[in-house]
Design a protein around this nucleic acid. Structure first.
Length: 769
DNA sequence: ACAGAAACTTAGGAGCATGTGT
DNA sequence: ACACATGCTCCTAAGTTTCTGT
């Protein structure tokens, strides 16, 4: 598998800690060989450019391409939080800082490092980005202002009078409940609303949502009506012929124990059913469901044989695939009916799509990465577990016959419709609205507006933290270095987590000593920091970057007298950091940096890569590359598709074929030309034209295939979706499409267009983030 | 001021629907 | 018409931030 990617291996493997990585063969091996090749080097080059926003950071960004997924079971090291501070150590560190601070001016001169920002300048800036919110008039007057003002979603009651365009829109949208309304008069983005209108008696005012009134008191809605959740179907006991064997002997289980056994049987093909923790947790929870008789008999999971059950389920799913068209249609219709009945709610004057109206079915918990609770039983949720949230004056949802809700409340300070407490972590789960809803769209918009406000003061903040690297207080230095990482590397904040409750993953503030390595010199670079840790979802973050000398020195200081499992930033946590950020800019938190850096990178990359001479597919490739730069920045990875190699080969075959076709066509053209030269008649002239066209067409097709191949290769282990959906201001993409004449459908699929309807509606081609 | 709970966003993967080429 | 690849939808875990109570 690695043989054909020669030069990527050393890097890839250097970070692989997995001692039992062989267990994960197919998937894991692939991930381990996320290799570096020329294309990727190019990519990396681009990324460097993309960070020119950080130009005041003197060093260039060197991002290592190898973002490897970490093997399971590699760090079952026992950890102890050394939160108890050793007073002596502390004192010594503080003293060291003081002394190093004392001789700083000298050093600074030596370095020729001059601060170019006078305090006065720093001070003058806050006035600009603090405390200014546009009046309602600002928001209304024009589209441009819509884009450029920070339409801060500080709940101001804004009843919008619409500008021309909005009026037109309103006219279009403002059909009332007449369900025979002409579907064609609705925009694509509202197709979902339209389809929901069919067969629906509910009153509906489709008004353009993101221009509607907001609430000043923190309430999220006035009216909320829905039908409650859809519960998982009840358990259907297995037919008698399907047997479970214990110690080689058939044994009929009672339904509760049988149900849990089927959960295990369904997962038999998964590698994790072989894991000790998984098996242990499962067995413990399974036994809780057994009768005392079963309990006394079944004492060893290794003696359990679930294979008949497993076969049965495989056969069932096979049968489902083989169903006739009619049967499939019937199921589809039933699903549609349920969607229509339970999938929508009325919030204020809109009928809105609900996100997840189905209650999570029971099953075995599988956390990601090395999760201590994997295999535990996720219990069935009953109506008695459910809290309903709706408005007092709405028609309350009815619990299934013979059951009761746990509670019905009317809390309009929150956006959820239904909640319940989950039994694995004891956390609360919610049913909320779809991303296309007004309430989510507005929030999304607000998020990007906050990021844009950061754009205005990011220079000031960067100067500030660079200044803070010199502070005499340890906590301030730590805060400043952490913020630098968050800004430069788009790391997550990194909350503390309860040990033993979840997989051992970290973010910036929770980095431990063992997660970084310092290299005063590496190849031709100085002050290189190597990061290697598991982040959210146990996705490995591996990166080597040169940092400024001062950062490097600080890191050395933070590492002094610490054990590998000690916190790197022992005087810092997310709440301290965010409090600080809040003082720097209203609404600023650590994650805003990720949003800001992602969006600004996209904008820059698009500017750099787009070329008006390009064909549409080439432009789309440029877009995907810009998108990819962001995904790399944010470390959004995916497992290479199972069929990757094969599909790549197929594509290559197609390309080869096209090339043959092309040379054949060219020959024909040549022959036709010669023919024409000889005869000079009309007929041969026509033939030349026909052949010329053919060549052209084939050239285009070939180009398209090649572009496709490039795109796919570059995308092997990078997931574009996450950044597209959560980090990139959609107005940038919309504006780009308008500017370069690329249909929006090339960039966003239907769901995405629904989610970003607000942006599609408001961004013009000159929009700037 | 802090801890724990609540609320809400961000995340990757499974599985299914759809489209495409033969 | 069929097989197969691809893209999309759903699912729900895992984060961050905010709120609440002491």
């Amino acid at each position: 598998m690695s043989g054909d990617h020669g030069h990527g291996d050393s890097q890839a493997n250097s970070g692989s800690k997995g001692s039992d990585s062989h267990k994960h063969k197919d998937k894991h091996k692939d991930k381990e060989h996320r290799h570096k090749d020329h294309k990727k080097d190019k990519e990396r080059e681009k990324l460097k450019h993309s960070n020119s926003e950080h130009k005041e950071h003197s060093e260039k960004k060197h991002r290592d391409k190898e973002k490897l997924r970490h093997g399971d079971g590699s760090s079952d090291k026992h950890r102890e939080k050394h939160k108890e501070k050793d007073k002596d150590k502390e004192k010594r560190r503080e003293e060291k800082i003081k002394s190093s601070h004392a001789d700083k001016p000298k050093k600074e001169k030596e370095n020729g490092y001059v601060r170019n920002t006078s305090p006065a300048v720093i001070k003058s800036e806050p006035e600009e980005d603090n405390g200014f919110y546009p009046s309602p008039q600002h928001i209304k007057t024009s589209k441009r202002e819509y884009d450029d003002e920070e339409c801060e979603y500080k709940p101001k009651k804004v009843k919008t009078e619409h500008d021309k365009k909005a009026k037109k829109r309103k006219h279009e949208y403002e059909e009332d409940e007449d369900e025979s309304a002409d579907i064609n008069s609705y925009s694509d983005a509202d197709a979902i609303v339209v389809s929901s209108l069919r067969g629906c008696v509910l009153l509906l005012f489709v008004v353009i949502r993101w221009e509607e009134e907001r609430y000043t008191d923190g309430s999220k809605w006035r009216f909320l009506e829905h039908k409650g959740p859809v519960f998982a179907p009840p358990y259907e006991p297995l037919p008698d012929k399907v047997k479970f064997y214990y110690d080689g002997k058939p044994m009929k289980l009672n339904p509760p124990a049988e149900e849990v056994a089927t959960f295990f049987a369904k997962m038999l093909d998964h590698e994790y059913t072989t894991k000790d923790i998984f098996r242990k947790n499962f067995f413990k929870d399974w036994r809780k469901e057994m009768t005392s008789e079963e309990k006394s008999k079944i004492t060893d999971l290794n003696k359990c044989n679930f294979s008949e059950m497993s076969e049965y389920f495989k056969a069932q799913s096979e049968a489902r695939k083989q169903m006739s068209k009619e049967e499939k249609l019937k199921i589809k219709e039933e699903n549609e009916r349920i969607l229509q009945e339970y999938g929508f709610c009325i919030m204020d004057n809109h009928k809105e799509r609900i996100g997840n109206f189905r209650i999570e079915p029971p099953g075995l918990f599988r956390g990601r990465g090395d999760h201590p609770k994997m295999g535990m039983l996720k219990r069935r949720i009953r109506p008695e577990d459910i809290i309903i949230n709706c408005s007092k004056d709405s028609k309350q949802p009815k619990p299934p016959p013979g059951t009761k809700w746990k509670e019905v409340r009317h809390d309009n300070k929150v956006t959820w419709l239904v909640s319940w407490t989950e039994n694995i972590q004891g956390s609360i789960k919610y049913i909320m609205l779809n991303p296309s809803s007004r309430i989510k769209g507005e929030k999304d918009w607000q998020k990007y507006e906050t990021a844009r406000r950061l754009k205005k003061c990011v220079d000031r903040i960067r100067n500030q933290y660079r200044e803070d690297w010199k502070s005499k207080e340890m906590r301030i230095r730590q805060r400043a270095v952490a913020l630098y990482f968050i800004d430069k590397l788009a790391l997550r904040a990194g909350n503390e987590k309860e040990e033993g409750e979840t997989a051992d993953t970290v973010g910036c503030c929770s980095l431990r000593v063992e997660h970084i390595k310092l290299y005063p010199k590496m190849d031709d670079q100085e002050y290189v920091v190597e990061f290697d840790f598991l982040g959210k979802d146990s996705i490995r973050y591996y990166n080597k970057i040169p940092v400024e000398k001062r950062v490097f020195k600080n890191l050395q200081l933070f590492l002094e007298n610490k054990q590998p499992e000690d916190d790197l930033f022992d005087r810092l946590n997310t709440s301290i950091l965010n409090k600080h950020l809040q003082e720097l800019m209203d609404g600023l938190t650590a994650k805003v940096f990720r949003t800001y850096n992602a969006s600004i990178t996209l904008q820059q990359q698009l500017k750099e890569l787009s070329c008006s001479d390009d064909s549409i597919p080439a432009k789309v490739l440029s877009y995907n590359r810009a998108n990819r730069a962001v995904a790399i920045l944010c470390n959004h990875q995916r497992a290479p598709p199972k069929t990757f190699e094969k599909s790549m080969q197929n594509l290559q075959t197609k390309i080869d074929e096209k090339q043959n076709q092309l040379s054949a066509a060219r020959k024909q053209l040549k022959a036709a030309k010669a023919d024409h030269k000889a005869s000079h008649d009309d007929k041969s002239k026509k033939t030349v034209e026909v052949k010329r066209k053919a060549v052209q067409r084939i050239e285009e097709q070939l180009m398209k295939l090649q572009v496709q191949a490039t795109d796919r290769e570059e995308n092997k282990q990078i997931a574009l979706g996450t950044s597209k959906l959560n980090y990139l201001d959609p107005r940038i993409s919309v504006a780009w499409c308008k500017k370069w004449g690329v249909p929006i459908e090339k960039i966003y699929n239907k769901t995405q267009r629904e989610k970003f309807a607000w942006a599609i509606d408001m961004a013009e081609k000159d929009y700037e983030f």
